[in-house]
Design a protein around this nucleic acid. Sequence first.
DNA 1: CTTTAGCAGTCGATTATCGAGAGTGCCAGC
DNA 2: GCTGGCACTCTCGATAATCGACTGCTAAAG
Lengths: 350, 350
Amino acid sequence: MQTVFEQLNERRKTLLGLIVDDYIQTAAPVASQHLLKHPELKVSPATIRNDMAELEDLGLIARPHTSAGGVPQDLAYRFYVESVASHTKAPRIFQVLVQEALHQDEADPEAWAREAAGVLSHEVRNVGIATVPRAFQARIRHVQLVPVRDVQALLVLVMQERRVRQQRINLPQPFTADGLIDLSSALNAALADKTARDVRAMVEAHQADNGAPRLIMEEIVRLVALEEEQEAERHYVEGLRDMLSQPEFTSGDRAREAVGLVEDTDVIKQMTADVPDHGEVRVIIGNENRQEGLRHYSIVVGRYGVPGYASGTIAAMGPTRMDYARAISSVRYLTSFLSGLLDALRDSPE
Amino acid sequence: MQTVFEQLNERRKTLLGLIVDDYIQTAAPVASQHLLKHPELKVSPATIRNDMAELEDLGLIARPHTSAGGVPQDLAYRFYVESVASHTKAPRIFQVLVQEALHQDEADPEAWAREAAGVLSHEVRNVGIATVPRAFQARIRHVQLVPVRDVQALLVLVMQERRVRQQRINLPQPFTADGLIDLSSALNAALADKTARDVRAMVEAHQADNGAPRLIMEEIVRLVALEEEQEAERHYVEGLRDMLSQPEFTSGDRAREAVGLVEDTDVIKQMTADVPDHGEVRVIIGNENRQEGLRHYSIVVGRYGVPGYASGTIAAMGPTRMDYARAISSVRYLTSFLSGLLDALRDSPE
DNA sequence: CTTTAGCAGTCGATTATCGAGAGTGCCAGC
DNA sequence: GCTGGCACTCTCGATAATCGACTGCTAAAG
């Protein structure tokens, strides 16, 4: 793949970059005459036409019809992302915006994710997605049973990285409020700092036991396991409206298709399932997507978090003709900023 | 307004009903010849044309152009809703569907709302909206402080109708886990069965006090008050995709407009703000909407709940040409079913 | 071998025209 | 008040024509 780009001389590389730039901005096939406006190109339109014919042969651009301008193909975007877009920095204004949006909810990772998705979608004028950070190995920090009624209680789990998970459970026998508090204390002593695996081992060690504690511990195992599973990732999706204002969605059919994709939680979940390492930003362009339906979309996805502790995902989704420079820099900035927040959360006093 | 309908003789009334019926199904202007298929009308097409001219004069139907069929206006839908649509019963299949969907989450009003919105949207092939039930006068059932870290805790409030509200709060001084449990017990003893007003009075009575308890109680007041306020209603919105499959949204612009409306939480909140009494179902048609943007939409909204105890809202939203009979019967069935669930929740053993 | 100039040719988009078909409005008669 | 009949109107789809934008190619120059 890389060899394709190596076949290009310098002029053709800059030409390709300019074509992608133009197309990203105008959404219209780029004509050779139009490219003359760029001062970098000190050649005649005929030369440009020759070069474009070459780019077409290499599969980098295509033409909607015989006498039309060039439209970048997935491969051209890949080139653009590798050579141009990755070196951009997020604009200062965006940085300030992020800081203001996220410093409001001091220590609430759930709110961070929501805000991040919103800010990102606005910035890239496409869909923004963020998952709530999830622990690598979920460890229990605190357990509490809150009475709801005598045979039902609310099980509140506070995880090591301060995420809170709650679940109503039915009790096998009535409990008084005091009884539950005692039970909570006992559970706490036994379970603090334990992982799902630990708890499961404890449950199995006491096969003979039954009654309330066992039932509750099984529920705890289930919740902690959920915490560890990919499927359980809570995510926020914002800015469908922004994406639909892009010219590729003027047709009603395309717009409807996009709504279907975004409303389908499976699609979103898969999108955030296979993410790069911390700090890295991955760009998935058009056909590189595994999912059929995303063939005309690109995704810029990054992971934030603290290695070995907790991590979440930030992604921008839009048509393949999206502003990669902006998307990549925005996602990168958001991941590093959120990582900082998470890190501070971890280091904060016990 | 009622007088307009009184000017119509029986035949014209059934004619109007049939026109609305047809238009709801086909989304195309209804021609006089097409109406002949209905056996109820034992007259010639010419007579029908005369009658339709009359309906047009009264503003009940309009024609897109001089030689086109009739399109019902808001007023005609109003007539249709009053005279026809209100008497329909929800089909058995739908009832079973609702029962299955809602019996899964035994005693979780939050989940009920989510499921209800989804089921409704599917049934009416439009957007379904449901709010989580909210107490009339929020009463505290139980208070619990769960340690998160030494200067931060999770305040969990269980309300009288078993809704759970949680909020992280910062503590003015470090607390141990045991200290928080003691504090929780004290708070519980003092606050069980109290309303926001009660708590506020207690706070004011102890002006001199300060420190943790006072701070926490102020937070409790805020939360309980939120519980009582309209703005705090959590709601679920489902089925945008279904609505966009309606023919009025084939144009990209219309589709985009709809997405904007649904993504705008303000619009949804206003929609569920002014609701009818328990058991009643209100239909708001086109221009009857207060909000400019909803001029071409209708909303079928109902309240469920137990009077004097708690209530929530169920609504279907779609283009004015929506299946009112189906929407009204579905909303009515859902409200009564959810009311039953809530009632059972209240009567359940302490 | 690369670049340039010029020109013919291609294709999409827009506009115009036309005919068919659907459906109404109205008039005259029952 | 209802009906039959007929002329008129308007939309919709197909076809054709024109315009303009751009390219591809060829041949000459660097």
